[in-house]
Amino acid sequence: MEELILQLKQEIIRVLNLEDVTPAGIADSAPLFGEGLGLDSIDALELIVLMEKRYGIKLKDPAQGREIFTSIRVMAEYIHANRTK
């Protein structure tokens, strides 16, 4: 799980162009939206694309994303349980 969390942080930094952010600077349980990383709605769409492209997970219900993208740890746990690649 810790390896997946680190990989996920690296992917998010790359995909969302978080220039001044390092994996160590993202707390596993910090909120991704609002406070924490302060991501926006376009970032949420990029995360949905990342989930499908990198891990083979299709999110059909946008409301589902709201729960999954609570924090890096929650996201990693969901990926671990549902990934197809």
Partner: peptide, 11 residues
């Protein structure tokens, strides 16, 4: 390797 239109480019 698949069709993944980028939302952040689209905007």
């Amino acid at each position: 390797d698949g069709c993944y239109p980028s939302p952040s480019l689209f905007v």
